[in-house]
Amino acid sequence: MDTMSHLREFGAVDAYLKECASRTVLAAIANKWTCLLVDALQDGPVRFGELRRRLDGITQKSLTQTLRTMERDGVVVRTVYPTIPPRVEYSLSELGQSVVALMAGIRRWSEDHVPEIMAARDRYDLRAAEDPRPVPVD
C-alpha cells in the first residue's frame, strides 16, 4: 500500500493531498494581510480604523474580508461594545496567539532579506531579457 492511500484510508491530515482541509488553513494563513494582521494584533485589542492605518495599502474591503475569515477560523475575536456609536475591537484568540511567533518571523525574514531578493529579481530579469526561453508546459 502506498503512503497516499494509507493516509487517505485513515483520514490523516496531509497538506500534500488535494482534498485535505489543511490546504484551506494554509491558504488562509499564507495571505499577506493575515500575516500582517496577526502581527498587528499581538499586543492586544485594536479597532478597525487603527488596523487600517497600520496596514498601509489595505482596502477597507480587504481588511473586512480578512478579519471575517480570521474570525471564522477562530484566529480573531471580534468584540462589539454597546455604545453609541458601537465600538468594535479585534483581538487574537488563543489559537491566534499560537501563530504570532511564526508570522512575526516571516515578516522579519521578509524585511531582512529585501536587498537580496530584489538583487536576485534584477539578475533574473536581466537574464530573461537577454535570453528569452520558452516556458515549459507540464
Rank of each mutant, 00 (worst) to 15 (best):
D39P: 04
K18V: 05
M103F: 03
I106M: 07
R8G: 01
R133C: 10
R68H: 12
P45E: 01
L26I: 05
S98F: 06
V76L: 09
Q97E: 11
L41M: 03
R78H: 13
W33M: 07
G49A: 10
S5W: 12
P45Q: 01
E94V: 08
R123Y: 11
V75W: 12
M118H: 15
R8H: 12
G44R: 14
A128C: 12
E116R: 15
A30N: 13
Q65P: 03
L55K: 03
D2V: 00
D39F: 06
A30I: 01
R8A: 10
L126I: 06
E94A: 05
S22C: 08
Q60C: 00
M1C: 13
K61L: 07
E19L: 15
T83I: 10
A40R: 07
Y81Q: 08
D43C: 05
V25K: 09
Q97L: 05
K32V: 04
V38T: 00
T79W: 13
L41C: 00
D138Y: 15
S22P: 09
V100W: 03
D2C: 01
A104G: 04
A104K: 02
R8Y: 13
E116T: 02
A28D: 06
P85A: 10
T79P: 01
V76F: 10
S22E: 05
I29E: 08
R68A: 04
D122C: 09
E9I: 06
V25R: 11
W109Y: 12
E19G: 11
P86F: 04
K61R: 02
T59P: 11
Q60T: 04
S5N: 02
L7D: 08
I58M: 05
L92E: 04
L63Y: 01
M4D: 02
P82Y: 08
V75A: 06
H6Q: 03
T24K: 14
V46H: 08
A12N: 02
P82A: 15
W109C: 12
S93R: 07
D131W: 15
D122V: 13
A12C: 01
D125M: 15
L26Q: 09
V99G: 05
D2G: 00
T69G: 15
R133L: 10
D112H: 12
P132V: 03
T24Q: 14
E50N: 00
R8V: 06
Q97H: 15
M1A: 13
T69K: 08
T69E: 09
G57F: 00
R23P: 00
R68L: 08
P85C: 06
G49F: 00
E116K: 13
H113R: 13
R52E: 11
L41Q: 02
R123A: 14
G57N: 07
R68D: 12
I58S: 06
K18L: 14
C35H: 11
A27N: 12
M4G: 12
A27Q: 08
R87S: 11
L17H: 09
M103V: 04
E130F: 12
E19W: 15
I106H: 09
D131V: 06
E111M: 07
V77W: 11
D14T: 06
L17C: 01
